[in-house]
Design a protein around this nucleic acid. Sequence first.
DNA 1: ATTATCTATAGATCTATAGATAATGC
DNA 2: ATTATCTATAGATCTATAGATAATGC
Lengths: 219, 219
Amino acid sequence: MPEGGAAESRLERRKARTRASLIRAAQSFIAEGNLNVPVLEITRTADVGMGSFYNHFDSKEQLYRAAVDAALEAHGQLLDHLTGDLDDSAETFAQSFRLTGRLFRREPDLSRVLLNNAPALITADRGLAPRALRDIEAATAAGRFTVRDPELAVVLTAGALMGLGQLLHDRPDRDDAEATDTLAEDLLRTFGLCSAEARTISHRRLPDIGTVSWGGTAA
Amino acid sequence: MPEGGAAESRLERRKARTRASLIRAAQSFIAEGNLNVPVLEITRTADVGMGSFYNHFDSKEQLYRAAVDAALEAHGQLLDHLTGDLDDSAETFAQSFRLTGRLFRREPDLSRVLLNNAPALITADRGLAPRALRDIEAATAAGRFTVRDPELAVVLTAGALMGLGQLLHDRPDRDDAEATDTLAEDLLRTFGLCSAEARTISHRRLPDIGTVSWGGTAA
DNA sequence: ATTATCTATAGATCTATAGATAATGC
DNA sequence: ATTATCTATAGATCTATAGATAATGC
């Protein structure tokens, strides 16, 4: 019996696949703002039998919570994966912001789940918010940022991302990278970097975004 | 037969009262994030008969749309009313932001309706967004702001308010005026005011917020 | 006389489960 | 032999309306 992480038994993998499929289906409905969907329609979208739903969740609300959670978690995992090798907190912060900005076009469903759950994105202990708090506090401690109120800085960052995501969703013609990096630069200046450095850091080359692993991760 | 605005007939006023009551009830459910509510429960909360619902709306979704619309409209009316006599666009912008910040504690239901509909707040053609766009463009034209991308400035403003609202909702102990004015000052600097002026404008005395008229206004 | 509202309910829809089937483990 | 999934459905719940009642207009 292999242990830890991905291996497990075939039975457990099948179960996990069913669960992930239900979560993906729920996310597609959350993304389109359509929460009043019969369980049967969710299971049809997930391509599983109606009964399977109740093997995994007690109610639609519980599924929805898990679906939002999974979206936050996928986002957080992606940021960890792509910014793990940076050692300047200010730069980790900036890259996380800029990568998220690029995610809106690349993962419209994920981003619309987050937009439609702004309160969760802004203050959850999963996903972007806790990582932004960590980076802002570290950068302040290191003398890179001069932020008096890290909590306020976090909600400004998360709010800016909500606004950006909505803009990119409403105006498909706009250049996402340019808009994102402009906002990143503004935030870095607000947090105490000088103009020149804000500009440099917010225009560094970014790592390639791979594929976001979609629903498997959540609690 | 009196004409225009508020007067109308007694019958029409009664009808308007029923409608407003349904909208208020819907807003309370939207505020608590509970959209899956039977029509009967909505009408009970509104203290009207089940049948009255169908005199006014074809479906719950239509009621919900009207309820969000009414919240945006109430917000917009309030801003117009309280900032109407200012002639500096930069100051109109700042006061609108600061008044909205103070609204979160004073009108928790209104603000939670808006937080739970972030996309609507950010890009609707009602409420804060169109007014912020107007003020930012005017202030830029007048040489007060140096904003290159007014649309981006608007979504940053709206996003900052979402973040602020969520923070004030999650942390009842925080000083709302201080947090709000700090963010206002940050935004004014980002939009091109010098530090001294940003500070002054974001700490001017505000007019008293009266009562927000709640559901009567929307389409 | 007209209009809005209310109460009661038929019919439609949805939830949650029981029992049958299929996949995996050993 | 065990575990997950699937299909079919009883019972619960909800929607939308018909018909009765109450308020207003004239």
